[in-house]
């Protein structure tokens, strides 16, 4: 089986099928990241599509300085930040769509709580937001988070700890 770098090299030489192979290989992880984020299959697929369309252009200049997985994950996190910024404004305008108190539809309530949680995450400072996103959406170990964000492992843990504390305070209020 060819490595990611070998596939990228082939793609840079003009073989589009190499790009397709790369997409198929990483689609489950990328889609999985976004579905945990959005809880919406269509949105998750759109976001995954956006990321890979950007990759199609960006890989032509890929310099092989890092693992493709790391590079892709950074793109996922950036896309998630864009999504959070977009939904922050959408949520502000759609406050009346919260479920009525006393009405219990477990699925809807779960979805709304998840949206409420991500809405709160969007309010975090950017570093904390990125660490929390990677921990929740990808269950990524701190070591890997530190590599992606180019910070120390301890710094990643501290950011996560502060983020959780901030979120708890937000929900308490």
């Amino acid at each position: 089986m060819k490595t990611d770098h070998e596939l990228i090299k082939e793609f840079q030489e003009g073989r589009e099928t190499a790009f397709n192979e790369l997409v198929k290989r990483h689609l489950p992880n990328t889609y999985g990241f976004f579905i945990k984020f959005t809880a919406d299959e269509v949105e998750a697929e759109d976001l995954a599509q956006d990321v890979f369309i950007k990759m199609y252009k960006a890989l032509k200049k890929f310099r092989f300085e890092s693992e493709f997985k790391t590079y892709l994950f950074r793109a996922n996190v950036n896309m998630s930040n864009t999504y959070l910024r977009r939904t922050k404004w959408r949520n502000l305008l759609h406050l009346d769509q919260a479920p009525e108190p006393g009405y219990v539809d477990t699925n809807l309530e779960d979805e709304w709580r998840r949206k409420e949680l991500w809405d709160a995450v969007s309010k975090l400072p950017s570093r904390q937001r990125m660490v929390v996103t990677m921990r929740i959406a990808q269950e990524m170990p701190y070591k890997e988070i530190s590599k992606i964000m180019r910070i120390s492992e301890n710094s990643a843990k501290v950011n996560y700890h502060h983020a959780v504390k901030t979120l708890k305070d937000l929900f308490k209020n």
């Binding site: 397709n20 997409v23 198929k24 689609l27 489950p28 889609y31 999985g32 579905i35 945990k36 809880a39 299959e41 697929e45 995954a48 599509q49 779960d110 709580r113 998840r114 409420e116 949680l117 921990r135 929740i136 959406a137 269950e139 959780v164 979120l167 708890k168 929900f171």
Partner: peptide
């Protein structure tokens, strides 16, 4: 809302990825 429980629920949620060929 228990934050950690929410995190766990999200992390462990099941999903099935779309078909590769149709996605491409």
């Amino acid at each position: 809302m228990k934050i950690e429980k929410q995190f766990q629920d999200i992390s462990q949620s099941q999903f099935s990825a779309p078909d590769g060929d149709s996605f491409l």
